[in-house]
Amino acid sequence: MNATVAATRRGVPLVLAALVLGLGMFGLVTGTQQIPLGEALAATIGLGDGGTSFIVQQLRLPRVGVAVLAGACLGASGALMQGLLRNPLASPDIVGITGGASLAAVLAIGAGLPPLALPLAAALGAASAAGVLQVLSRHTGSSSVRLVLVGVGLHALTTAAVTLVVARIDPRRLGAAEVWLAGSLHARNATHLTVVLVGAAAALPLAYGLVRSLAVLELGDEVATGVGVPVRRTRTLLLGSSALLAGVAVAVAGPLGFVALGAPHIARRLVGPTSPTTLTTAALTGALLVLAADALGQRLLEDAAVPAGVVTAALGAPYLLWLLHRTGR
């Protein structure tokens, strides 16, 4: 029986990868102009007519790629954060990391910086928020509890600051700020794809290198110390890795709510407690959620597209209420 369960759990990432691939292909072939699958796949490597190649390579492929990688980064970030804080309601959204990225990006928009500067600003904002979170929680007794409390306060502070900046921003730049804060994948290009690809390539290996130590850390600091895990150093690396993953995702896609919170829960229900397979499943689940939200948002209304962040937030709110109810029970 155990062997059957283990084999089933090992097959879950393969099924999710197939779903991500299928939904990604759907994103390549559908839109204002329908493109046959064969032509779309050929256009990804520069074959076919110029118009089709432009649509696929310049418009759809970067959007699909950013959705997949940003969702994967958010899913992995949430898995690390929830394990680090031993709290099922923890995520980069709730502890202020996403808020730091949002504040930096809105400040960059208000200052009139070019669009290509936004990813860098958001990544720096996420890193700064993680640094503040680490410093403020360093010299206290229970690191996990303190991280949560400080994070909630930091989230409230950054949210208020974003509201203040938006209220005072130049009206000519207000539209760009609101679109970014909604979590939109509109007009993603090769530069955005490169940014998230490089960030994921740097952060995901670190996350996989830490996941076994995270599984031990979840058993308690005393147990982790007893088996030789350097608790403080591991916490710092986990927080930094989670912040980097979230910052990279937010930098290219804006604050996509719920993904970092929901994907790890779904992953643990599918494959069990923290492990490399759980991290992979969380990443693939995050990618699938963002792809599905973007596809739904583009087709939800006939006359206007709905940002993916609005869709994920709308779908995530009922799930969060159910989770709070379940946790309370």
Rank of each mutant, 00 (worst) to 15 (best):
L284Y: 11
A293G: 02
A283R: 09
V306R: 00
T281E: 00
A314I: 12
Q298A: 11
L279A: 00
L296M: 14
L300E: 03
T285L: 09
D294I: 06
A293W: 06
T278W: 14
A308H: 00
G286S: 00
Q298Y: 14
V290H: 09
A282E: 02
L279W: 00
V310H: 04
V311Q: 09
G309M: 02
L284K: 07
A287M: 06
E302M: 15
A283Q: 04
V290A: 07
L289P: 01
A308Q: 03
L315R: 04
T281R: 03
A282Y: 09
A305G: 11
L291S: 12
T285P: 04
A293L: 07
G297Y: 01
A313M: 09
T278L: 15
G316C: 02
A313E: 08
L289I: 10
T280N: 09
E302F: 15
L301A: 11
A287T: 11
G316K: 01
L284Q: 06
R299P: 03
A295Y: 15
G286T: 02
A308P: 02
L279G: 01
L291N: 10
R299I: 08
T281C: 05
A282L: 04
L288Q: 02
A305L: 08
A282M: 10
L284C: 01
L291T: 09
P307C: 03
V290T: 11
L315N: 10
L315Q: 12
T278G: 14
D294C: 11
R299H: 05
V290W: 13
G316W: 01
A293T: 05
A283E: 03
A304C: 05
A283L: 10
A313D: 10
L289V: 05
A282K: 03
